[in-house]
Nucleic acid binder design. Structure first.
Lengths: 197, 197
DNA sequence: ACCCTCATGTAACTTGTTACATGATTGA
DNA sequence: TCAATCATGTAACAAGTTACATGAGGGT
C-alpha cells in the first residue's frame, strides 16, 4: 500500500544515502508529492533493512559521529521495480477540507461563501505563480528531451501547475456563478464548460 | 485537525441520523470528498457524544432491533460553525502514487512510461465522462440558483470535473512531449502553457 | 560561546484500513 | 427459506503527526 517505502527505495537506488539525507529529499520536489518526516523515515529504514531490501555501512563524520549509509539490495531493486511497473487501480480521493466546507455551504451566508472562495483562490493563485516562475527559471523555453530524471521533474512541475490552475479556474467559475445569483440571474448555463475564456 | 468529525457534525445538523445512515452518506457525494467506513464512524460518534457535541435517543426498528438516533447539541453547532467559517491555511499535497512513479521514471523505458501515462489517462478520462454525464443528468442547462445545498453539490461536481480534466490535459501533454522526444524533437516549448487547444 | 546543520532515534497519539463478529428486518 | 439491507460494534494493524531527547561538527 504505502508509497513511502517505494519512494525511499527509489531514492536509495540512485545513490547510497543516510536517513538524514533522505529526509532532506522529502523537503524538495519529492516532498510536494509525498510528505514524510525523519520520525517516519528512520523506523521505515529499520524495517526495510530487516526485510532485506536495504543494507547499511556505518561511516564516521569527523572524529566520532556515526552515520548509517544505506544501499539498496538486489531484493530491494526487484521490489522497487515491481512496484514501479505494476498496475494497480488505486484512486484515493484527496481529502479536501475546502470541498467538505462547500458541501455544507447551506450554513453560510452569501458573503461568507464569497469570502471563502476568494481567500482560497488567492492561495492557489499564489502557488500557481510560484510554480510557473519555477518552471520558467528551471526550463525556460527549453523542455528537457534526453535526461530521464530531469524529464520526471519537468512533468511533475507541469502537473502541479495544471492542478493549481484547474483549482483557480474552478473557484473563479464558482465566484462568477455566485455573482450571477446575487444579481438575480437565471442559471442558464452557456455552451462550454470551462475551456472557454 | 480531522475533517471527519466536522463532516459528521454537518450531516447530523441537517437531520438526526443513525450511524448506519451516516455511513451511507459517505458512499454518496460526500464519499468522493472524504472516505470513511462504519468502523471509523461508530467510534467517532461515541467520542463526539462524550465531548457533548452530539446526543442520541434509542429507537426501535420492528420488535427488538435497537438503533441510536444522533442529534447535534448547541455545543456541537458552535464547534461545527466555528470550523466551517475558520480560516486555516492547510495545504496537504495529495499523496499521489502516479506522481511518485514519475519521479522515478529514469528506471522506465520509453515504452513503459508511455504505457503508464496512457493507462492512467484512460482512467481519468473514464471518470471525467462519468462526472460530465452526472452533471448533465442532474442539472442539464439549468444551474441551481437558489437552493444552497444544491449549489454546494453543483460546485463540487463542477470541481471534480475541473480536477479530472486537468489531470487528463496534463497527461496528454506529457504524452505529446514524449512523442516529440521519440521523434527526436528539439524541446522548444510553444507559446501557451495549457489553455490553448 | 553560540548557532546552524548534521545525525539518529523514541514515545504518545491520531487517523485510517481490514477483518472479525453478531444479529434483526424485510421482501421475494 | 434465502438474500439483501438494516444495525452496531471491536480488534489488530498500518500510516502519519507532534513532541521529546540527545549529541557531534563547523563556522563566526
Amino acid at each position: 500500500m504505502s508509497g513511502l517505502r517505494f519512494a525511499m527505495l527509489g531514492l536509495i537506488s540512485r545513490r547510497p544515502m543516510t536517513g538524514y539525507e533522505i529526509a532532506k529529499e522529502f523537503s524538495g520536489v519529492l516532498g510536494a508529492l509525498w510528505e514524510a518526516r525523519h520520525s517516519q523515515i528512520y523506523p521505515e529504514l529499520k524495517k526495510l533493512t530487516q526485510e532485506g531490501l536495504l543494507c547499511y555501512e556505518t561511516a564516521i563524520s569527523g572524529e566520532v559521529l556515526e552515520k548509517k549509509v544505506y544501499s539498496i539490495t538486489q531484493a530491494g531493486k526487484y521490489v522497487f521495480m515491481d512496484w514501479l511497473l505494476s498496475d494497480e487501480e488505486e484512486y484515493r480521493p484527496a481529502r479536501d477540507n475546502l470541498r467538505v466546507r462547500l458541501f455544507f455551504c447551506e450554513h453560510m451566508t452569501h458573503d461568507q461563501l464569497h469570502a471563502l472562495l476568494e481567500r482560497e483562490m488567492g492561495r492557489h493563485n499564489t502557488r500557481l505563480s510560484w510554480l510557473a516562475a519555477k518552471l520558467d527559471e528551471k526550463y525556460g523555453q527549453q523542455a528537457p528531451m534526453e535526461n530521464l530524471p530531469e524529464l520526471g521533474d519537468y512533468m511533475l512541475l507541469q502537473g502541479a501547475i495544471f492542478r493549481e490552475r484547474a483549482y483557480v479556474d474552478w473557484l473563479s467559475r464558482c465566484l462568477l456563478h455566485l455573482g450571477d445569483i446575487a444579481r438575480g440571474g437565471t442559471g442558464v448555463v452557456d455552451a462550454g464548460s470551462g475551456k472557454s475564456e
